[in-house]
Design a protein around this nucleic acid. Structure first.
Length: 376
DNA sequence: AATTCGTGGAA
DNA sequence: TTTCCAAGAAT
């Protein structure tokens, strides 16, 4: 830590008053007030938005949020559908365990709370997909509970404000940030104050205290900000320690038959868990052989499509797509269609399933090819 | 405690 | 192009 004067608890509570009130005053004038999930105290709407916004930018979330709320406007409607239907609307958004947990939590809310939301943070945190920060966001926005969030915005703000010169993702540092955040909460306990304050933290981080080139001229915390006073805003917060991303290479088999493609459901765990994907093999496997042994399909190779690069947080993936024409003999056809983890679909149908982003790209690339195949 | 979960925007 | 990371949680 950079040298700083952190007082005893009583002192820090008193000193925190200006922090919260300045933020709140700033938020009322310069903050965001028209995001789709604002202006409501419906815990369901707030919950959905908070889950979608985990590690995901606002502009990305908005269309997904609108579609999701239109389809599932409340806990009961979400709990009543299959997890498949939830993942279909989640398709392309990433971190698909969020969608699975959302559905599980909706079912738990129906069973344990009669479809209502518990008011306290501890109970909220028991629900799958709701951690400490998301629980605090829901409790603050929906119920006016006096609890603090600690998302990427707040970590960045506090790292600068207090001059925290260690990586915020580090466990010990994160605990420190939680403690600092608790100490900055507004003293009042009314709902409106907690809503404004929590939104203020997010807005300051998103609009002023951004990662690169923060707009310190317009920051209500400028006078007390350690990083600004010491010209450290460019190097705080300390970035994540670099790691070399491993590169994985796989083959996706795009099987074509009578205007349809084959999608295979992935196992529940691992990347793209439970989503529909092309059959996947290693680069040194033979696609035609794989079709024969695992899918009971005779196939002939058509062509190899240009490879697709996809970067995850922890590895890079090179997808080598192979177009295969499958010939389905009658008994073989029955056998392959009997597998409940395989689906023959037109591309239009496939695009409406729970598929990850690269599969969507490949489907769109395949569309013209399939058209020409049909005319043969 | 360190990994494993997606995807796309911004620099 | 590469790098970083965004309203984090679960394991």
């Amino acid at each position: 830590m950079i040298r700083q004067t952190v007082g005893r608890p009583k002192v820090s509570v008193v000193r925190s008053a200006p922090f919260a009130s300045r933020l709140i005053q700033w938020q009322l004038v310069y903050g965001r007030h028209s995001l789709p999930w604002q202006g409501t105290r419906d815990p369901y709407a707030i919950w959905i938005s908070e889950i979608m916004l985990q590690q995901t930018q606002v502009s990305t979330v908005i269309p997904y949020y609108e579609r999701f709320m239109a389809a599932f406007p409340n806990v009961a409607s979400l709990a009543s559908v299959s997890v498949e239907e939830v993942l279909t609307l989640w398709s392309g958004l990433g971190y698909y365990s969020r969608g699975r947990n959302l559905h599980r939590a909706a079912c738990m809310l129906m069973e344990q709370y009669n479809g209502m939301f518990p008011r306290d943070v501890a109970a909220l945190q028991q629900l799958p997909g709701i951690g400490r920060s998301t629980a605090a966001a829901i409790a603050a926005f929906a119920f006016g509970e006096r609890c603090t969030i600690l998302d990427g915005n707040v970590k960045r703000i506090l790292a600068r404000y207090f001059g925290v010169n260690r990586y915020p993702g580090e466990k010990i540092t994160e605990e420190r940030l939680w403690h600092l955040a608790e100490g900055l909460l507004p003293v009042g306990e009314d709902h409106e104050t907690m809503t404004s304050y929590t939104q203020a933290l997010m807005d300051l981080g998103a609009l002023i205290c951004v990662r690169t080139q923060p707009c310190c001229q317009y920051c209500p915390l400028q006078a007390d900000c350690n990083a600004y006073q010491n010209d450290l805003t460019a190097i705080l917060p300390v970035p994540r320690p670099r790691k070399i991303l491993p590169v994985k290479e796989i083959v996706h088999l795009i099987l074509l038959n009578q205007g349809q493609v084959l999608l295979k459901k992935r196992q529940a765990s691992g990347i793209w868990g439970g989503l529909w994907c092309f059959p996947e093999i290693t680069v040194d496997q033979d696609g035609i052989d794989y079709c024969k042994k695992n899918l009971y399909l005779r196939a002939t190779k058509l062509t190899e499509l240009p490879h697709l690069k996809h970067t995850f947080t922890h590895f890079k993936l090179i997808i080598r797509p192979q177009l295969l024409q499958s010939v389905m003999h009658q008994p073989v056809c029955e056998e392959s269609s009997r597998k409940d983890d395989c689906l023959w679909l037109t591309i239009e149908e496939a695009l409406q399933q729970a598929i990850p982003a690269p599969v969507k790209k490949l489907l769109l690339m395949t569309q013209p090819v399939l058209q020409s195949c049909i005319h043969e």
